[in-house]
């Protein structure tokens, strides 16, 4: 697996777990399991660090990763620009 793919998959996994914690509290449902082992690093170091960076910076970094988005794509309504 390419590094960019591994990083994205792993990052998404822990960001989703952290989000499930937040939403579980908000909606009163059982939260994900307590983190253990390597989970601790990702949930207690990586996720807060990710959230601390402004979205526009994070978005710009993500868009620099290799992928289809870096090739030619015409959006439907260019006049309104990017939504987020």
């Amino acid at each position: 697996m390419a590094f960019s793919r591994w990083l994205r998959a792993t990052s998404e996994r822990y960001l989703m777990i952290a989000a499930q914690h937040k939403l579980a509290v908000k909606y009163g449902v059982p939260p994900p399991r307590r983190p253990r082992g390597a989970d601790l690093f990702w949930l207690r170091v990586y996720v807060p660090a990710y959230r601390a960076v402004p979205w526009r910076v994070r978005s710009a970094i993500m868009r620099r990763m290799p992928g289809s988005h870096r090739r030619t794509w015409t959006t439907g309504d260019r006049s309104r620009g990017q939504a987020v």
Partner: peptide
């Protein structure tokens, strides 16, 4: 690409 699929335009 990073989602694992082939890169296309």
């Amino acid at each position: 690409g990073s989602a694992g699929g082939l890169v296309v335009d």
